[in-house]
Write a protein that binds this DNA or RNA. Sequence first.
DNA 1: TTCTATCATAAGTTAAATATTATGACACAT
DNA 2: ATGTGTCATAATATTTAACTTATGATAGAA
Lengths: 304, 304
Amino acid sequence: MRLMRNSTLRQLKVFEAVARHLNYTRAAEELYLTQPAISMQIKQVEENVGLPLFEHLGKRIHLTAAGRELLALCRDIFGKFAEFEMSVADMKGMKKGQLRLAVITTAEYFAPRLIGPFCQHYPGVDVSLQVINRESVLQRLADNLDDLYILGQPPENLEVHSQPFLENPLVVVAPRDHALAKKKCIALKRLAGEPFLMREPGSGTRMAAQRLFDEHGIKLNIRMELGSNEAIKQAIAGGLGVSVLSRHTLALEGERGPLTILDVQHFPIQRHWYLVYPAGKQLSVVARTFCDYLLAEGRRISRK
Amino acid sequence: MRLMRNSTLRQLKVFEAVARHLNYTRAAEELYLTQPAISMQIKQVEENVGLPLFEHLGKRIHLTAAGRELLALCRDIFGKFAEFEMSVADMKGMKKGQLRLAVITTAEYFAPRLIGPFCQHYPGVDVSLQVINRESVLQRLADNLDDLYILGQPPENLEVHSQPFLENPLVVVAPRDHALAKKKCIALKRLAGEPFLMREPGSGTRMAAQRLFDEHGIKLNIRMELGSNEAIKQAIAGGLGVSVLSRHTLALEGERGPLTILDVQHFPIQRHWYLVYPAGKQLSVVARTFCDYLLAEGRRISRK
DNA sequence: TTCTATCATAAGTTAAATATTATGACACAT
DNA sequence: ATGTGTCATAATATTTAACTTATGATAGAA
């Protein structure tokens, strides 16, 4: 049995035509071939299968059991090809595609609201969103596992294309009943005494805040390191201290929620969210469209 | 998009190997080819698809969305081929197959009990049994729609191979309380007065009985023509007359049932059931095996 | 019987697929 | 900077699939 090894799709198509007409000559006409061409192809396929596919009785031919199975196989395969071709056609026209995003955890506070409208506009596009820590994002970036990445700061050791698309203001967050809550223009050094809650070292937010305080020669009193922004917010609400967070993490907090933003000098620290992908990577149509959309959306939000 | 038109299974296999290794050189080694051969094949497939299948980043390559879809297609298709090849292998070894039988209605009284054990012995064989009247059987035979046919007498106007495999004794059936029920060696002419129930003209049983009576110059009093053996049995039980039937139709009637067999001279008429198929037809392995089985079974039953 | 439709076979041609060798370009690691 | 691994390209060779023409065999219809 060497069907797969030796046969060609063409032979299967010839077979299918013959099986449909149950007549070599008709099949030949349909395919613009001579009848002997058909005879030969069928003979080949039968040799490859190892069993007769047609039964010849007088001038009429009939499918054998093996022939019926092969016909089913052909129809099945041709169908799969047709499906595939449609998929590809859709991909070409952006009616269909995949968009694999990997974003740093803090982006979870705003990314879904940007992605949502995009998905609605292109319902054929499957978007997968990985929300992981910075280190994992960089690893996936290096392994080229996704189409696009969102980071709070572009990686330095990898060759990438990166583009800021949205402001990322870092603010000082405190409980609403904090002593400084109502003050205006709080001096930076007033924070020196406050117990600080921070993400782990390596966090972009932490590094940016650290740099600001270092520049002003202020030593922070770091009370606790916590593994997620949400944990920090809970801790602040619990009165364990204050922290520097992206304002996006407070998007869902109301005017009367348990947290508030302190009006500290030099804050908000203006950072940006970056759209990143490996240098030299040829983006898919979907990914390019998404980039354009994100940039436009970023500008729109800034103007407001 | 001309994937189906222009590509070959070989190209898909090359693609699959590359997609698996994500490395042209490795794929080339696996297929005992040189690397440029791979490059060319992939280029061809990409042209046929109309989209890149791989993304080249530095020395590493990755599948594009289209590539992933094509890989899925390949695996799918290769799987179908494998299934088909297994099917065919099974057919060759009788582990699998189809057996399409068309039998004349009277055969329904014994055919299932012959077919049953065969099915049990070859559980991979799908048996389909058409129970239809003689005319339909002959039509199907002429159209070569089945593997084998069972008839009470071989057709005369068609070229067929036919072989008797089981005795088919025709007997005179009467109600158990019939006047002649207890008599021995009833003379044929005693039946002349009896009201007779018969199948329609053309029925083999009817023709055989008619011939016997004609030979002895006896004119039958045909009271009623009925369309099935079961209907005739009901009518006999209802006292509407007597009839000539295959003894097989009484197989399930008990010793004390409402019907009995009259011991009439020249009865039972010894006829046979015939296994028939078109002359020159190459029987499938399954059909041949079933023939052998039926003949052996027929001999076994006769000996008893 | 003769004619016609149908498939098989043989010989030879054409065209296409597939391959190789040789070489170049490029990224990455040392 | 150099070397190594990897893919691309060009020129060319080889194989083989696919097709045609010509002819033969056979079955069924006229």
